[in-house]
């Protein structure tokens, strides 16, 4: 990618501008060192983080901020583990106090084994958070009506799932993702379910603004190398989307000219 194209092809959410279209989670790594190396290799500028109790018996333990500095990466605090709107709102109020950030990732999940977005609880939490001044990027079902409703409520980005969190199944319903993307006036990120680089590329080819993933990198045998692959996949998919794919023909069409053929 040449410098000009990269500079021009930024995306924006809540007034912040990003050149990388890959947003990565910081969970599930073997160590904070590996976390830092994989995130660096991914080229991501925005990372999701979780909010949890400090360990009072080891207050001097190394912290995420020491390895993934918030002055270099935009922290996007999440509500992972929250199953009610009340828990989600409480968690993000704490995140705002800890970091001073209003831009947050809302996810309210149903029970295992699918952890599918609980949309009624998500609507309730989104409403409370927006009223409280948060800028909400929201994990949601691949449901065009739900995505539109979240946008109309004032969410700054909608993030439909590709497949259940941590499943690595790829895009289970590309058609619905495409319809959400085509109807949205806010950025759309495909969040969760991506397992490998071609699936990140496929999401970008659908025209989404960015891709959010975590396990696909953290659970690869070589996370740093997979982070590089994801970066390349996202860039390739974005270029392919902008370039516009050729139409599908259900018959062959020779690439070499017929004129000048020897007889």
């Amino acid at each position: 990618m040449d410098g000009m194209t990269a500079a021009e092809d930024a995306w924006e959410v809540a007034g912040r501008r990003f050149r990388s279209r890959l947003v990565v989670g910081t969970g599930r790594y073997k160590s904070l060192e590996e976390t830092a190396a994989a995130i660096e290799a991914s080229g991501a500028e925005m990372v999701t983080v979780a909010v949890r109790r400090v360990n009072l018996s080891d207050p001097g333990a190394p912290m995420l901020q020491d390895f993934v500095p918030p002055d270099r990466y935009t922290y996007l605090p999440n509500t992972a583990g929250c199953h009610t709107a009340k828990e989600a709102v409480r968690t993000l109020r704490l995140a705002r106090e800890a970091g001073g950030w209003n831009l947050v990732k809302l996810e309210v999940l149903g029970p295992p084994p699918f952890l599918y977005p609980d949309m009624p609880a998500t609507f309730e939490a989104a409403e409370a958070l927006i009223k409280d001044g948060f800028q909400v990027m929201v994990y949601c079902a691949d449901d065009p009506l739900a995505a539109k409703r979240l946008e109309e409520m004032g969410c700054v980005a909608v993030m439909p799932l590709g497949a259940p969190i941590g499943s690595g199944l790829g895009l289970s319903n590309p058609f619905m993702l495409r319809s959400i993307i085509e109807n949205a006036r806010v950025p759309v990120l495909v969040d969760a379910g991506i397992g490998t680089a071609s699936e990140a590329a496929q999401a970008m080819e659908l025209g989404c603004d960015a891709v959010l993933l975590n396990s696909a990198i953290a659970h690869a045998k070589d996370p740093v190398r997979m982070a590089r692959a994801m970066r390349a996949g996202v860039e390739a998919g974005r270029h392919a989307f902008l370039a516009g794919r050729m139409p599908r023909n259900y018959a062959a069409d020779a690439s070499s000219p017929m004129a000048g053929l020897i007889r």
Partner: peptide, 10 residues
Amino acid sequence: LEIVHFIGGG
């Protein structure tokens, strides 16, 4: 009291 900080998460 609840005392929290940021940890790795997806």
